[in-house]
Structures are given as C-alpha cells and as structure tokens.
Design a binder for these strands. Structure first.
Lengths: 228, 228
DNA sequence: TGTACATCAGTGAACGCGCGTTCACTGATGTAC
DNA sequence: TGTACATCAGTGAACGCGCGTTCACTGATGTAC
C-alpha cells in the first residue's frame, strides 16, 4: 500500500531528526545544571551534541524557543509524578472507608517531592532559575505549568469530603498556597551543598511544620474566614 | 592641625571615587530592570556611566562583586522600610491599650509591600531574578538579607502578647512563612504587565486571603500543633 | 606660601576569543513512475 | 525492481561584533618639608 510506504520511509528520516532534536534538549538540560538559560550559548549546546552550530537552526529558531520547549518537556514529566504521589496514597488509604486523613496526601506530596528533588534536580532547577529569570517565553511556560499543577490539585481537593461546602475560589486559593510552598522548598533545597545533608533535613522539617500550620488554618477556615 | 588637613584633602579624592562607584551601582541597577545579572556586561555598565571599561577595575574585581554589593545596598534600604511599616502601625494602635490586633501588622505589611513593589521595583527585581539565579556570591547575599528580615520579624512577633508561651522555633517557622509569602507575592506582581492593574489587584487579594488562612492556623497553633 | 615628589582614578589602544548568523554545499533518504 | 529527480538534516567556512582583560600613560589631587 502506498500510504504505508510513505509512512514508513518518512518516519525514518523524521525519527533521526527527532533524535537530534532530543539530543539538543538533553544537552541543554545537562548544561543548565551549572548555569542559567541566558548564559547558555547556541554553540555550547551544539558542541555538546557534536553537530555543527548551523544545524541548530534546523530544530529551533533560537535558544529561547529551545528553553520554552525544555520547560514543556521537563515539567510535563514532573506534574504526573506529583499527582501520582497523591493518588497512590489515596488508593492505599481509602480501602478502610471514611478513615482517610484528607491532609495526609498533601503532607505525603511534600515528602515525595523533597526526596524527588535530590534524584531529579533538572526540572526543579529550571523552575527555580527561570521562573523569575530573564526570558519572557520561558517564564510564561513555567507559569503555565505551575498554574496547571495548582488547578489539578484544586480538582483533587474539591473531590474530597472535607472540602464539601467550600467555594471554588477558596479551594483555588489554598491549592496555590500549597504549590507555592513546595516550589519554594524545592528551590531552597537545590541551594544546599551536597556535603550538608543535615541542613537539607532541617529545611524539610521546617517546611513540613509550616505546611502543618497551613493545614490547621484550613481546618478552621470555613468557620473563621473573613467575609472577603 | 595635620590630621584635619589629611582628612579633608583625602576625602575630596576619595569622595570622587565613591561617587563613581555609586554611579556604577546605580547604572547596573537601572540596566537590571530589563535583564538579569549574568547577562549584564562590564562594558555595558561603564558605557552607561560614561567611563572607560578599564576604570571598572578601580572599583570592583568583577561583575559578581558588583552584584553582591548591589544586593547589599538595595536590600539594605528595603529592610528598614518593611520593619518600619510594622512599627508605624503598632504605634498607631497601641495608644488604646490591649485592643491591638497582633495579626493586623502582618496584614498591613503585605499591603505596604504590595504598594511598594509598584514604586520601587529595583530591590524586588533583584530578589526575584537572582535569588535562585546564576551567581553564588549574589545568591548568598540575598539569602542572608532574607534571613535577616525573617529574624527581625521573629523578634518583633516574640514581643507581642499573643506569642507568649510560643517556642522560639515555632516563631521562627512562622516568620519564615510570612517572609516567603511576601517574597513570592512581590515576584508574581513584577510579572504583571503594566497595562493590567486589575490582574495585580486580583493577585494581591488572593495573597491577602492566603495570609489570612495562615493567620487562622497561627491562632490555633498552640493547641493543635503536632508533637514533633 | 611655595616647591618637589607621590599617589592613583581614569584613559585609550590593543589583544585574543567565542559568539550568533549566513551561505552554498553534500549526500543520504524519500518519492514517482 | 530500477531509474531519475526531489527533499532536507547536517556541513564547514566565513563574517562582523562585542566581550573581558592588559598595559603604559596622563594629569589632577594629596603629601612632605
């Protein structure tokens, strides 16, 4: 069949191009461990991949476009992990019926993320360095992903029994608070020297306690919130 | 008197040098409105001041050192403003006796800061862009100032009647939470386009409500905090 | 007060370097018949 | 299956440019006597 042939043959060349494109993204991600996007050069990336500088333009218009794509890819992998951490726990706990602690999944998410920062620094470094960094396109891509994370969390919270009777605005508000809290924790953890694991532990424990205070506030919110 | 002469004469040349040094810092601060430190060049700064590139080395070893100095100067001015906002309000309220709301000064600080971001963007831009940015020296300087701000806030809170019976660790913990919250708000506000004042107002109102939830948590903390 | 010398902030020319971008090209892969 | 042509990812040389840094210098300011 002609269609099949077309599909097979084009896919070979297309796949090779795709592999180079991903090599560029991977190389950039690696180089970003030690610098930020605005100091990362086009030649630096192509050199790391082993292709001529001019070949870069076959894949991206400029470094900003690569940066935005990197955010998309990198944070696109991270978000399901976070949401998965919440749901995995819910499934564990729900078998008993109404005994699940609705705040436990939040606490667990913080712990999972704190551990994940150590093993997968890439996406967190990007968030930390570029969230308020130089390039508008990249900042927008990050803001978008964080907003998405907050929306997903809000959706999950809204389904919990404890949040029945809550206004959507207030759920969104508290989801934003949780997201900001873990973003700020992960950024702080990245700055801890590798030879000071105690300091990392101390920071996590403070963050956990701060989260706990927010949770206490949440418990009393419906009865004590100000009229707006 | 010989001493006086020495002092007067040296001070003239010394003062001129100091003026150039501050011109360099001012120029850098101006240029940082539209870019971050790692993309700011030495020649760019000297050009803005109107001196030869080589003259830069009479004042700073490199751009990183200038950056760290800029943080020192810029955030050094900001901190007293913040603390002043709290105390100015306390004085207003305390004349009546025990009627002061201990949380009102925190709420007021957030409002003062939110307004201040609009008129004095410099220090906030530096915090936002460079806090997790590229240069270690600058990151350290910012972390230091933020820690100082949190310590000052903790000291002020500890003096309030409402915080009697609190452990110092818990006061430090909540002070950190407040500081992170305003840092995150100011960073977000800087990204709002100037032609969307409504969006800024919306963000401030959400942040105020989040702060209120934290305050509710604080009120119940002593009775409901987990053992740890 | 006047003179001779020291200091040192700022100059301007020069340097080597790596950058982003352009361009005509090559040759493997894909397409049409 | 075989042939003639089209596509296009990657090449390599070249370009102009602005960068950070060096250096011997100038001349105003400061110091000693």
């Amino acid at each position: 069949m002609a269609d099949t042939t077309v599909h097979q043959t084009t896919s070979t060349r297309h796949e090779q191009k795709q592999r180079t494109r991903e090599a560029l993204l991977d190389a950039a991600a690696g180089l970003l461990e030690n610098q930020n996007l605005s100091s990362l050069g086009l030649r630096e990336v192509t050199r790391a991949v082993g292709i001529a500088p001019a070949a870069f333009y076959r894949h991206f218009r400029d470094m900003d476009e690569l940066g935005a794509e990197l955010v998309e890819r990198s944070l696109g992998e991270l978000l399901p992990v976070i949401r998965g951490a919440r749901h995995a726990h819910d499934a564990h706990d729900d078998h008993g019926g109404g005994g699940a602690d609705p705040d436990e999944s939040i606490r667990r998410t913080l712990d999972v993320l704190a551990a994940y920062v150590g093993t997968h620094q890439g996406p967190f470094r990007i968030i930390a360095r570029e969230r308020s960094g130089g390039v508008a396109l990249v900042r927008a891509a990050i803001a978008d992903k964080l907003r998405q994370a907050a929306r997903e969390l809000a959706d999950d919270l809204a389904a919990l029994p404890d949040y029945q009777g809550w206004q959507r605005d207030d759920i969104t508000m508290i989801a934003g608070l949780f997201v900001n809290h873990v973003v700020q924790l992960s950024s702080t953890l990245l700055d801890v020297p590798a030879d000071q694991p105690d300091e990392a532990g101390r920071l996590i424990s403070v963050a956990r306690r701060q989260l706990q205070l927010i949770i206490v506030g949440r418990r009393h919110w419906l009865t004590e919130r100000p009229p707006e």
